[in-house]
């Protein structure tokens, strides 16, 4: 069965004077209706770049994109990478929507919240100005904004951070899209507000039967809402599996490092957070071989120095759990145990 969005071998790069920035390399992932895919990675790992390519939001002049991203719509599949700009524009808002990290700067400061939501609705629906505002009010009510009818006439600066993100969600969902890409939707928000927004996304997903791609660097967020997780590093997916796979049976040293750097309440006072040594790689000159190799504490355990020379393939090590590492999962496990 094909999923709603199928991204295959997506490459996104930006030619610059210093060389080509390869922001996304051979990235493949898919997400079905009603499913949440989390894409996890640090800044510059290519997680946003890949999804902006799906939305067609890159500057076509300054970006080189190859590969495919197929939306399986009711009236047939469309590859948004090869489709014309106008075709992709007509899918935006209606079939796929996106919300962004900072809801303050992502909303136009000169227009009311209601107007901005109504504008999106009017694009794909016929109706009077009043109908638009009515629809906007309805959406604001749906995303849990109290007194929505009067708040629709407020400007973004009159909303709190969490309210703004709710309004962004209302705007993104006003045309009932099948795919919502949430790019770090909770990063700019207070922790208490974060969980409210995540809960809201979960509720709305049930109601609209949407596919959600959640882009985040926060593993805590992921555990709460995701069905499947892709871990990205240096523009590549390094591990892809279910939430349980990633959290309980990680098969890539980078994922292990990420998990070790998350504070745990159960660990006791003696537990120290273990940061991953070194810096993320430059996307202009990626290390030869495995991008994580210079920071990987296990790279010396691989015979013949394959880590430094060959990019490991993203291989299925059983039941749909993919990992891009020269080390066998069992060997990695033993090494980790030896250290402990």
């Amino acid at each position: 069965m094909s999923k709603f969005l199928e991204v295959t071998n997506l490459n996104v790069s930006f030619p610059t004077e210093d060389g080509e920035v390869r922001a996304s390399n051979e990235v493949s992932y898919s997400v079905g209706l009603g499913e949440t895919l989390a894409i996890v990675g640090e800044s510059g790992s290519g997680k946003s770049v890949s999804n902006l390519a799906v939305m067609g939001l890159h500057n076509p002049v300054r970006t080189k994109i190859t590969g495919s991203a197929v939306l399986n719509l009711a009236d047939g599949p469309v590859d948004v990478i090869s489709a014309s700009a106008d075709t992709v524009r007509r899918l935006r808002g209606k079939s796929m929507s996106m919300i962004f990290q900072d809801p303050m700067s992502a909303l136009h400061p000169f227009f009311t919240i209601g107007d901005q939501i109504a504008e999106a609705w009017h694009l794909y629906n016929k109706g009077s100005k009043k109908d638009g505002i009515k629809k906007a009010t309805e959406m604001l009510d749906l995303v849990g904004i109290p007194d929505a009818a009067s708040r629709a006439h407020d400007y973004p600066h009159q909303f709190s951070g969490g309210m703004r993100q709710r309004a962004m969600i209302a705007m993104a969902l006003v045309n009932n899209p099948s795919l919502l890409i949430a790019d770090e939707p909770t990063t700019a928000l207070d922790v208490t507000v974060q969980s409210q927004i995540l809960q809201l996304l979960k509720d709305l997903q049930k109601e609209f039967n949407m596919a959600i791609i959640l882009i985040t660097h926060d593993l805590g967020v992921v555990a709460e809402v995701a069905d499947r997780i892709c871990v990205m590093y240096g523009g590549r997916i390094v591990e892809d599996g279910t939430v349980d796979d990633i959290f309980y049976r990680p098969e890539h040293p980078y994922t292990l490092g990420l998990l070790n750097s998350v504070p745990r309440i159960t660990a006791g006072e003696s537990h120290r957070l273990r940061a991953i040594p070194g810096q993320p790689p430059s996307l202009i000159s990626l290390p030869s071989g495995c991008a994580f190799q210079p920071r990987c504490e296990y790279s010396t355990k691989v015979s013949s120095g394959a880590c430094a020379s060959t990019v490991p393939s993203l291989s299925d090590k059983g039941s749909g759990h993919l990992s891009r590492c020269h080390l066998d999962a069992a060997d990695l496990n033993n090494l980790v145990k030896d250290k402990a």
């Binding site: 939001l57 996106m98 992502a106 400061p109």
Partner: peptide
């Protein structure tokens, strides 16, 4: 290059509307 212009694009607005309504309003203020 403002975020709200990217939002306008993500909504599915045409480049013409984005320029006339969203960009110029903020740029000419």
């Amino acid at each position: 290059s403002e975020d709200f212009i990217r939002t306008a694009r993500a909504k599915g607005l045409t480049e013409k509307v984005i320029l006339r309504k969203h960009t110029l309003r903020a740029a000419l203020a």
